[in-house]
Each structure stands twice: as structure tokens, then as C-alpha cells.
Design a protein around this nucleic acid. Structure first.
Length: 258
DNA sequence: ATGCCGTGGAAACCACGA
């Protein structure tokens, strides 16, 4: 079973690239972020024609998350994090797919920091951490994946010294990620590649991709039962080099059949 | 050191992203 995450940065503008990658990579389950489309403008027909059923939570202009499956039903569990009914951003959707609970998330960017956007990021992180603890406590197989907007360590940034005051790398942000992981989750890429420079995002400008000036901010956190099945993980880095690509590349894991 | 680029929506600029 292959599960992937991809921040598409506009699902309609990105549709040709998304379909090309789906056809090439053939993931069984896909989490998408930054749809940037209202609920009624999700390209459901094109996704269905590509062989995937879809569950999505759209929002006009910004945010938006989706889960795609080509291995059967997507049973929706929730389409928001608990803890703040005032939060109207579409940043989380959770479903049961193929016997695994999939949490698809788009954590707030948080810049500029400090400030209200950074406060929102940290509050959102706390809500995610509380919800993750509840999921973990069930003992069920869970995958929490998406754009975390966090570089967990200096290894995950091309020039760490330039990012120390940024909302994606500030000590509070890194501590929040560490606190979440230490509930018992496994960072799939770092388990398999503990010391390699691996990025999932490259800026559109300053030739960031060709200079490999990247960040690792899209992550897979696995509960113990899923971790036991982990056989491979990677980044489809070349997709970032395609025409009209997102600034993120797809990230994926492969799990052994039960 | 920096939205220099890209997207969406509204309006021919602006908000937002990382």
C-alpha cells in the first residue's frame, strides 16, 4: 500500500501536473493540501476519470485539503480539528481508508513571527497535538501526513542560520513538532534516512530548485502499527522540475500488506 | 537579507504563501 502527500498549491491550476504524477506514481491513497478552490470547484470528474474517489474540504481562495483513494471507500471521520469552532480554515480532514485512519493536514505558515499569525500557528499545533494523542491512545493504525510547515532540525534546511527567526523554524515551532513526535509517532523519512539531506519544498524564485535550496516541511508521522509495516519512503523530487509544478514535491511511503 | 514567483479573486491590484 502506497500513501502519498502533495501540497499542490492550487488544485485546478495544477490539474495537468497532478494527473501526470498520479498516472506515473500510482499511489493508492493521496493527501492533498492547498486546493485553493471552493467546495464546488474541486475537479472531481478528472480525479474520478483517473481512477480515484475523493473526499475534500474546500475553501474560497486559500487552504483546502483532500484525500483520494483508488483502493475503495473513503469513510469520513471529521473535517476539522476539534477545539476551536471559530476556526473556519479548511486545514484538516480525516478518514478511514484501507483500514488505516488517515489525517491529512495543512498546518498554518505562521509568518510573520511574532504576531497573530504565529499565535494561530502555535494554537493550531496544540489542537493537533491533543487530537493526535487521542488517536494514538486508541491503538489503531494512524497516519498523520501533510504540510506541517516545520523544518524539524537543521538537517532539514539548506541554510539554517537564515531561518532561525522564521515561523517555520523558530524554537517554539520545532519544540511543538518534537512534542508531537514524542507521543510515540515515527517520522517515516527520518527513520529510513536518518542523516540524508532530503527536501520537499523549493521556492519558485532565485533558482531555488536548481540550487537545491530547499526545505523539508511535508512529513509522514506513523503510529506503531503502521510503523511496523513501513518498507519504503521517498520524495518524488523530479516532479518539482516539471513545467507549471507546485513549489512542493510529492512525498510517499510504502507499507507491507498485513 | 529579500516574496525576486505563483495562485486565486477581484479588478487591471491585492492577499497570501514559506
Amino acid at each position: 500500500m502506497k500513501i502519498a502527500t502533495y501540497n499542490v498549491n492550487g488544485v485546478n491550476g495544477r490539474l495537468p501536473v497532478l494527473l501526470r504524477w498520479l498516472n506515473e506514481a500510482a499511489p493508492d491513497v493521496v493527501c492533498l493540501q492547498e486546493l485553493k478552490a471552493p467546495q464546488e470547484n474541486f475537479p472531481e470528474k478528472a480525479i474520478l476519470d483517473a481512477g480515484y474517489t475523493a473526499l475534500w474540504h474546500g475553501q474560497k481562495s486559500w487552504n483546502g485539503v483532500a484525500i483520494l483513494s483508488r483502493i475503495g471507500d473513503i469513510q469520513e471521520v471529521r473535517r476539522a480539528l476539534p477545539g476551536d469552532p471559530e476556526d473556519i480554515h479548511s486545514r484538516y480532514i480525516e478518514a478511514l481508508v484501507g483500514g488505516i485512519t488517515i489525517g491529512c493536514l495543512y498546518l498554518p505558515n505562521g509568518n510573520p513571527a511574532p504576531g497573530p499569525k504565529f499565535d494561530y500557528k502555535l494554537r493550531w499545533f496544540e489542537r493537533l497535538t491533543l487530537h493526535a494523542a487521542a488517536l494514538f491512545a486508541t491503538g489503531a493504525p494512524v497516519v498523520l501526513t501533510g504540510d506541517y510547515n516545520v523544518m524539524p532540525t537543521e538537517l532539514d534546511v539548506y541554510k539554517p542560520e537564515r531561518w532561525v527567526d522564521d515561523a517555520l523554524f523558530r524554537p517554539e515551532t520545532r519544540l511543538a513538532f518534537k512534542t508531537l513526535v514524542e507521543q510515540g509517532w515515527t517520522d517515516a523519512i527520518r527513520k529510513l534516512y536518518p542523516n540524508e539531506v532530503i527536501y520537499t519544498f523549493w521556492d519558485y524564485f532565485r533558482n531555488a530548485y536548481s540550487r537545491n535550496a530547499g526545505l523539508r516541511i511535508d512529513h509522514f508521522l506513523l503510529s506503531p502499527h503502521v510503523n511496523d509495516r513501513l518498507v519504503a519512503a521517498g520524495v518524488d523530487r523530479h516532479v518539482r522540475g516539471w513545467e507549471k509544478s507546485s513549489d512542493h514535491a510529492p512525498v510517499w511511503i510504502t507499507l507491507a500488506d498485513k
